[in-house]
Design a protein around this nucleic acid. Structure first.
Length: 478
RNA sequence: GGCCCCAUCGUCUAGUGGUUUAGGACAUCGCCCUCUCACGGCGAAAACCGGGGUUCGAAUCCCCGUGGGGUCACCA
């Protein structure tokens, strides 16, 4: 028997923003497909017209591109199973839904939203699960015909059998048995003619020959509906993998409310996509040699869905920050400079290049470079007392700056010589090294936390360095 | 509330019946390095949810509690 090509799909809804949890899903889809020389498919699930947001689909492409998870088939790229946008496949869903109706596995329902609401409330009062009461299940065909002819709005519902066991096979959890009496007669086709997720995803996953449905655990409880559909259609179901959902620090589902859930927030903050991916990979999975830092390529080669832990992990931003810092430090200066550019719009390209090695060991996120280097483009302002670092008195401070200025002017352009010059000056005058550099630092940058000060001088340029030393001297004299 | 899933340091996890005084990483704390801040190095503190079984022996297997989570839409 020929082994089927592994095909996974990432199937987001274009609702306006990309969740980190979605990125996690996409990573697993991608890694598993690539691991098995399979295909990674992007399908746009835009069946909810109310929630559709213009431009949202574009953001999905941008997100995948930023992450470096390129689909093999997508609405943009096309592929053998096009179209990959569900709104363009309406006829297909309708056709399959009607097939079910003909076979008595689904039925037209003409109940109004008001009636449904009433039924729900009633059942809840009785302590029953708030399900549909099956009112239209047994409408006589003549009545259905009549309603249809009259153009009464309708939906198509799945006819769920009573008193049956429905078994869902999940790769991570094994067999899960559901009582069909707990499964609602799910709407398959909405009154606007669009399918619901349940119908559309089953039909598409089958038609697109998806072998592994990897999705969040929140889908587990609706999985019996999907299994039932596969049975009704006589299709072989794919392997289901319900992956843990990411949690807030309070262990609730990572939502829009708390924490940072938008993938683009991470981009804006200056997280590197490769670091984010590495971090995500470590959620629910661990490297066989306990390595923390590894590439996407390495992840793919070692990854197996079976090894994913079913426990919903808390998304620990601090560990991500640490990891991002590791990636920044591993990067060569030139590459770091390129990535830093968009975060330092006030610096010239030359300056960014020079700044890269100075901030490299001091930032966890690219965005932090901005604050660290702000002294370069901002006018500095500080109280005079700030210059009197480590108990340095006014006269000493003045002397320090005067002497330092001489050396800087004389040796400008040669960092090593400036440093050596300052060091021997300190020795000669018997100053405290730390105190001297702090006074110098404040004079140049206006603050006590900066990149290495001697190396930072050329970011400012000779003129401004001298200017600032003069300004500091003025300040001290008043 | 019904149904379903889950349960090792604060967090991410290793561990698949004995090699475990339960290992690593982040975070925390201390020391060292040091021109500040960082980086780096060394070290400390820190966990098997509880109760029953099974077994010569359970973090590891079973059951029951407890706790957390998910889900109950013409949203995905």
């Amino acid at each position: 028997m020929k082994k089927k090509t592994v095909r996974t799909r990432f199937a987001p809804s274009p609702t306006g923003f990309m969740h980190v949890g979605s990125a996690y899903q996409a990573l697993l889809d991608y890694a598993f497909a690539k691991k098995n020389q399979g295909k990674f498919i992007l399908r746009i699930e835009d069946t909810d017209q109310k929630r559709k947001v213009p431009g949202a689909e574009k953001k999905i492409y941008q997100a995948l591109e930023w992450l470096g998870l390129e689909p093999d088939e997508s609405p943009q790229k096309g592929g053998p199973f096009a179209p990959y946008r569900q709104s363009e496949r309406l006829k297909i869903y309708r056709q399959y839904a009607e097939k079910l109706v003909k076979e008595g596995k689904a039925y037209y329902c003409f109940c109004s939203p008001q009636r449904l609401e009433k039924v729900r409330r009633q059942r809840q009062r009785q302590g029953l699960p708030p399900m549909y009461d099956g009112h239209c299940r047994h409408l006589p065909p003549s009545q259905v015909e009549k309603n249809l002819r009259e153009g009464k709005p309708f939906v198509i519902r799945l006819k769920v059998p009573r008193n049956k066991k429905i078994v869902v096979n999940d790769l991570l959890r094994g067999e899960i048995v559901f009582d069909s009496n707990m499964v609602d007669d799910q709407v398959l086709i909405k009154s606007d003619g669009f399918p619901t997720y349940h119908l559309a995803s089953v039909v598409d996953d089958h038609l697109m020959e998806i072998t592994h449905v990897i999705r969040g655990e929140e889908w587990l409880s609706s999985a019996p509906k999907h299994i039932l559909l596969y049975q009704y259609f006589g299709w072989e179901p794919p392997v289901f993998v319900h992956t843990p959902i990411l949690r807030n620090p309070d262990r609730s589902k990572m939502s829009k409310r708390e924490g940072h859930t938008s993938l683009f927030w991470y981009k804006k903050e200056g997280f590197l996509p490769e670091a984010l991916l590495n971090f995500l990979a470590l959620l629910g999975w661990s490297h066989p040699q306990q390595k923390e830092i590894f590439s996407l390529k390495e992840f793919i080669s070692l990854f197996d869905l079976k090894d994913v832990s079913p426990l919903g992990p808390v998304f620990d931003l601090r560990k991500l920050e640490w990891m991002n810092g590791e990636y920044i430090r591993q990067m060569d200066d030139e590459e770091l400079g390129r990535r830093l550019k968009e975060f330092l719009p006030r610096l010239k390209e030359e300056q960014v290049k020079k700044a890269a090695p100075l901030v490299k060991e001091r930032i966890k996120k690219l965005k932090e470079a901005e604050e660290l280097l702000a002294f370069v483009w901002e006018d500095i302002d500080y109280p005079k007392e700030l210059l009197l670092q480590r108990g340095t008195d006014k006269d000493t401070a003045i002397l320090m700056l005067k002497e330092a200025k001489k050396i800087v002017e004389e040796k400008w352009g040669k960092i090593e010589e400036i440093r050596d010059g300052l060091l021997s000056l300190i020795k000669e005058k018997d100053w405290n090294t730390g105190a001297f550099f702090m006074v110098f630092r404040v004079a140049i940058c206006g603050k006590t936390i900066t990149p290495p000060i001697v190396e930072s001088l050329e970011l400012l340029g000779k003129e401004r360095v001298i200017e600032r030393i003069n300004a500091a001297l003025e300040k001290l004299k008043t």
